[in-house]
């Protein structure tokens, strides 16, 4: 059995990649993908812990999270499409007009 530390390490790496992606990338779709990576790194953590605890609850949570992520995709992509139609770009620096 793979020790739980490995899963925790992998999940921490994925979470960091996701966070850095949100902070450094400028394309709205890629930012959004990075956010999904963050959610999935948490999912990995849930499943790994659930296995060590021999409890089902952590595995069930993953289904909740996947449902929420799906709802977020539906709303998020619709927003991105709407912005693209008005501004012909999804680069968030070029979209940004609100300042002060």
């Amino acid at each position: 059995m793979v020790p739980v530390e490995y899963y925790v390490g992998l999940s921490a790496i994925l979470f960091t990649i996701g966070t850095l992606g949100v902070l450094t990338r400028r394309n709205a779709i890629i930012i959004f993908m990075s956010i999904e990576l963050m959610l999935n790194s948490a999912n990995l953590l849930f499943v790994a812990f659930a296995r060590t605890f021999e409890a089902l609850s952590g595995q069930i949570f993953v289904f909740f999270v996947m449902t929420v992520a799906a709802a977020e995709v539906a709303v998020g992509l619709a927003l991105i499409v709407a912005v693209f139609r008005t501004k012909d770009t999804i680069n968030i620096d070029e979209v940004s007009s609100l300042r002060g």
Binding site: F15, T19, I31, I35, M38, S41, A42, G76, L79, S96
Partner: peptide
Amino acid sequence: EEAGLKYFLLGAFAGGFLLY
């Protein structure tokens, strides 16, 4: 639209932190 997109991206980002 811009407000919606910004709120969405940062809100989902925060959701990731909360979940982790």
